[in-house]
Amino acid sequence: MPDTLMPRSSEDAARRPSAPRRWRWVVVGLLAVALAGGIAAWRMRSPAAVAPPPSTPTVLTVTTVVATPRSVPHRIPADGPIVAWQEMRLGMELGGLRVTDVTVEEGDTVAAGQLLARLDDSVIAAQLDRADASITEAEASLALSRAELRRVQSLIASQNAARQTLEQREAEVLRNDARLASLRASRAEVAAMLAQTRITAPDAGVILARDILPGSVSVAGQVAFRLLRQGRVELEARVQEMDLAAIRPGQDVLVRHGARSVAGQVRAVAPSLPGNTRLGVVHVALPTDPGLLPGMFALAVIDAGAIETIAVPAEAVVFRDGAPAVFVLESDRARLRRVTIDATLKDGALAIAGGLTAGDRVIAMGAGFLADGDRVQVGDAR
């Protein structure tokens, strides 16, 4: 039986889109394709985009100065304690004697020969009196023996005395003469001991210390007084070993202690370095009564003449890694060079002890903004 076309249900008819609606979607798709193609064609027809030019490094404009040699004062710093120019230790030469009197105190100014202390001299004075009596007796015996010798000599001349008698009288004179000389030497010894019971100042000065009291018993060799000879003090300046070669006796020295300034002179340079300090000792003589006392600590500047150095403006010196340096112009590049600063000059320039040679072109203005190897442009050379 032939197939017959059966009409669809009303539900199927509702699900199937209508013809006008399908054509609408087809047109929208064609328009989208055309738009995409047009954009692609426009891009192909437009000129290619130009890539941005590569960036060029910034060139800093700087000024330069020529490193020039200059003769500058050589000032050597030093420091150290104030010490006695010469400290005299006055001791007691006799032991076992009582100290009867002490006439000075610490800080007193004394004159040469002034009595400082006295020991009990009663026993020694009695010994001296006995020595004097013995000498008087010996002198009388010598005089008598000489008179006897003269009488024997006259008798020998008249042949009334034996030769043996003459020899005996001559021997007696020699014996008495020797005894007198011995007694005189003994008296001198006692007199010296008597003088040692009096302690006197061997020179003018200031008493730094007194170590005995009245009533104490003397001990041979004991230090009784410490005397600052002539009241003079000096600075025992300590100097770096590399600076010692430039220091000579007679050079001027400015010594500072707080607000006080004292002018001195180099007296002597110690011939060796004490210990392992690597510091030399320079003895600086100070004027009388400088207002400085032994034990104080002072600073000093030694005028060691003049030296030749290289000077650059202060603005040319920069610090890299905590060390001073300058930039030297090499062609159109700034090259970092380490330097050693010696001193600041009166016009504000810096004296360079090492790292530069005369004629180097040093960058002044703009040095603080540079790094090693930077390209620079010189704006104004000085």
Rank of each mutant, 00 (worst) to 15 (best):
F319D: 11
S272L: 02
G354S: 15
F327R: 10
I302S: 05
I302C: 11
A263K: 14
D332T: 09
R278Q: 05
V326Y: 04
H283A: 03
G291V: 13
V269T: 09
A259M: 07
I307E: 15
E315W: 02
F297T: 15
R335P: 05
P313Q: 12
S261D: 12
L356H: 08
L293P: 05
R278L: 10
L350P: 02
S272I: 05
G295T: 09
A270T: 07
A270L: 07
R267W: 07
P287S: 11
A314S: 15
A298M: 06
V269A: 08
H257G: 14
F297Q: 10
A349L: 09
A268F: 02
V281L: 14
V318M: 09
M296H: 09
S331V: 05
E330Q: 14
A358Q: 12
T344G: 04
A263M: 11
P290Q: 00
A311K: 04
F319H: 15
V318L: 10
R337E: 14
V328P: 14
D303E: 15
I302Y: 08
V281W: 01
R320H: 09
D289R: 11
L293G: 09
G275R: 00
L292V: 06
L279W: 02
S261H: 07
P324V: 07
Q265Y: 02
A300T: 02
L286E: 01
L350V: 14
N276H: 02
P274R: 08
A311M: 10
A314N: 11
L293V: 15
P290N: 06
E308P: 08
I302W: 08
A304F: 07
V326W: 02
F327S: 10
P324Q: 00
T288F: 11
R278C: 03
D289T: 13
L345W: 02
S261K: 07
F319T: 13
V282S: 00
A351R: 00
F327V: 12
F297H: 10
P313W: 12
P324Y: 04
P274F: 05
D289V: 09
G264D: 10
D332E: 15
V328I: 15
R260D: 13
G258V: 00
D303M: 03
V339Y: 06
G348Q: 12
G258K: 03
P274E: 13
S272R: 06
V326C: 10
L336H: 11
V301Q: 13
L336D: 12
P274V: 08
S261F: 00
T309N: 11
A351M: 09
A358W: 03
F319G: 08
A353E: 06
Q265N: 11
S261N: 13
A298Q: 00
M296L: 14
A316Q: 10
L273Y: 08
I302R: 06
G264C: 07
G280M: 05
L279I: 04
I310H: 05
G354W: 01
L350Y: 05
R320T: 14
K346C: 01
V318K: 06
R260S: 13
D321N: 15
A358I: 08
A268R: 13
A358C: 09
F319A: 12
T357E: 15
G354P: 04
A343M: 01
V318N: 01
T357C: 05
A343V: 03
R320Q: 14
V281D: 00
A323M: 05
D347T: 09
H283E: 01
P287E: 07
V284Q: 03
P274K: 01
H257T: 09
A300E: 02
D321V: 10
R335W: 06
